[in-house]
């Protein structure tokens, strides 16, 4: 093995990474830079008169009531993440005990996650049908005379979306918690039992802190993934009724491809990026502070 050969072998690194790097350049990096530049233009599709407008778009964003509404809706949407994490944890703890049909149960809870997409959203649209849907049929049969209008009213629509999203995310959180629970040493739990700790004390004082890195990770990845999503909402409500389900990511899509107001759409999309950046920075800072190993 001479040095020359080794050096040539090291240069092969570029050959291995190259093809993927071209893709990242063409479909991620260049578009990202382009999008950043668009933020300072009034570019509209098929409009040749586009030009540099400085910070106009940003000023417009800060005065746009729909931006604040979509921000609020986004926050309500994000509430689904901690709820699904909590439920996923409970299911994982129970499934981690000695049960029958473990594999089948795990598969059933996980199924919504893998079949994600608009198809399932359309099923929920009918389940939530305010007058005749089976959910309200059930609620009426247990004595609730005026069940919520779910997707059909401005006050309940975002929460109906949350229910779909909790249902969708729960299985993923459960799977990750199940893996984390495998790492909790049985000796530790045995020792706690000998010391007279009750079931829920063990859960709160030992298991919950031990899986806190997982909780933290699920929270961060869940928030980021959720904030990028708009497909199911576009499919079943298109942001309605009356913008009540227009979340930030959907607002970008609407401005870009409904109104072809692309400079402004780019501006909103960078606000979205800013939120993701803040979540990521909090992750870096918080990892040491909030996670108990």
């Amino acid at each position: 093995m001479n040095n020359h050969w080794m050096r040539r072998q090291r240069l092969l690194g570029y050959v291995f990474v190259g093809p993927s790097m071209i893709g990242v350049l063409l479909f991620f990096l260049i578009p990202a830079i382009y999008s950043f530049a668009l933020m300072f233009t009034n570019y509209k599709f098929m409009n040749p008169k586009a030009g540099f407008v400085g910070f106009d778009n940003i000023a417009r964003l800060l005065r746009d009531p729909l931006f604040y509404l979509s921000l609020k809706n986004t926050v309500i949407f994000l509430l689904a993440v901690p709820v699904s994490i909590a439920l996923g944890f409970v299911v994982a703890v129970i499934l981690n005990r000695r049960l029958y049909l473990k594999r089948l149960l795990r598969g059933l809870y996980f199924m919504p996650y893998i079949t994600s997409g608009v198809a399932v959203a359309f099923v929920w649209m009918l389940l939530f049908h305010p007058k005749q849907g089976p959910i309200n049929g059930f609620l009426r049969s247990v004595g609730i005379a005026h069940p919520p209008g779910w997707l059909s009213t401005t006050t309940s629509s975002m929460y109906a979306i949350d229910i779909i999203w909790v249902w969708f995310l729960l299985g993923y959180n459960m799977i990750i918690y199940l893996a984390a629970l495998q790492e909790v040493s049985p000796e530790l739990l045995e020792a706690a039992k000998i010391d007279g700790a009750k079931g829920w004390q063990t859960l709160r004082k030992i298991i919950w802190p031990l899986v806190s890195p997982t909780t933290f990770l699920l929270l961060v990845t869940g928030l980021i993934m959720t904030i990028k999503t708009f497909g199911i909402i576009q499919a079943i409500t298109q942001g309605g009724p009356g913008n009540s389900t227009t979340i930030l990511s959907l607002y970008v899509y609407q401005n870009a491809f409904r109104y072809y107001d692309m400079g402004y759409a780019a501006t909103i999309s960078w606000a979205l990026f800013a939120i993701i950046l803040v979540i990521t920075l909090l992750q870096w800072l918080g990892q040491k502070k909030w996670v108990h190993y």
Binding site: Y34, F230, S249, A265, A266, I276
Partner: peptide, 24 residues
């Protein structure tokens, strides 16, 4: 440095890329 670019692109939401990709 290259890997850092990959890392940072993970943070960029698809919404940022839709418009420029459409134009491109």
């Amino acid at each position: 440095a290259l890997f850092l670019i990959y890392l940072s692109m993970m943070m960029v939401p698809p919404q940022v890329l839709f418009v420029p990709k459409f134009i491109l």
